[in-house]
Design a protein around this nucleic acid. Structure first.
Length: 254
DNA sequence: CCAGACGTTGTT
DNA sequence: GTCTGG
DNA sequence: CCAGACGTTGTT
DNA sequence: GTCTGG
């Protein structure tokens, strides 16, 4: 889950929404943010919250190289406190990853084709929901600082992962995992360095937190970008090149 | 003791 | 670095 | 996350 | 099948 997302809100706006100082590079917005790219995070410091740019895909402190960063893009909430790569980050390396929405794929087998087809869906905050921070989602994350042992003169790389949990009933129509979303209280508690047991404050995410729509397979290629990637499509519309709904129960979800 | 892994996803 | 497997 | 590459030789 | 790049 959560291997591709949208950030169409600028760093300045993100910093205002999360009441943070903007300390990030001027990263361009993207409708197709892929693992290993630079993303924004909100972290707490002694001087308050800051928006910081980080690399998506965690490199543990002890890693000999950065080649496996792309495989540590998510951490399971159920096991994060046990895993060597993550457990030591919970106490003081928590962050919030702002996203306007994220993509999830469902593999569907169409009766007239042999190969399964990956239908992308776009999840975004339900307007007015507690999980909408002026239209932006706050995903619980962890960050780490890594220095390449083969390049001791180089600067440290800050990397991050997004936490995942079992999908709620609404999201599970498409996929069995979902990001750990934070409401306003959740952001407070997750970012507060004084929080004793941050994992214990994470609550179930109600079905009304998100809305979903099917989108074009253009998003499947990480080279695609552009606002049309989140345009809703009608899966029952034959003009999308898909079979009509009466022939395809799998696609008749929404 | 040393060597080797350390993660998630989905799929079977 | 720290834990697990042998 | 998905898409696309995955290799060597010698020659230009 | 598995790894890398985006």
């Amino acid at each position: 889950m959560c291997g591709r997302f949208v950030r169409k809100t600028s760093a300045i706006e993100i910093s205002q929404i999360f009441e943070a100082t903007n300390n990030s590079l001027d990263l361009p917005v993207s409708y197709n943010v892929a693992p290993t790219s630079r993303i924004l995070s909100v972290v707490s410091t002694v001087d308050g919250r800051r928006v910081q740019d980080v690399s998506w895909g965690l490199i543990p402190r002890w890693a000999k190289d950065s080649t496996k960063a792309a495989s540590l893009i998510n951490a399971r909430l159920e096991t994060v406190s046990e895993k060597p790569s993550f457990k030591n980050l919970i106490a003081s390396n928590r962050c919030v990853l702002p996203m306007d929405g994220y993509f999830e794929w469902k593999e569907v087998l169409r009766h007239d084709e042999i190969k399964p087809f990956k239908q992308p869906f776009y999840f975004s905050p339900q307007p007015g929901s507690h999980y909408s921070h002026s239209g932006v989602l706050g995903v619980a994350g962890l960050w780490s600082s890594w220095k390449d042992p083969n390049n001791p003169e180089g600067s440290s790389v800050i990397t991050a992962v997004a936490l995942t949990r079992d999908a709620n009933a609404m999201v599970s129509q498409v996929h069995h995992r979902m990001p750990v979303l934070l409401d306003q209280q959740g952001v407070m508690s997750w970012l507060d360095l004084a929080t004793e047991e941050p994992l214990s404050h994470l609550v179930e995410i109600e079905d009304e937190a998100l809305v979903v729509c099917a989108v074009s397979t253009k998003v499947n290629s990480s080279r695609s970008s552009g606002a049309d990637l989140i345009d809703p499509i009608d899966l029952n519309d034959a003009s999308n090149g898909k079979r009509k709904a009466e022939h395809n129960d799998e696609l008749r979800l929404f």
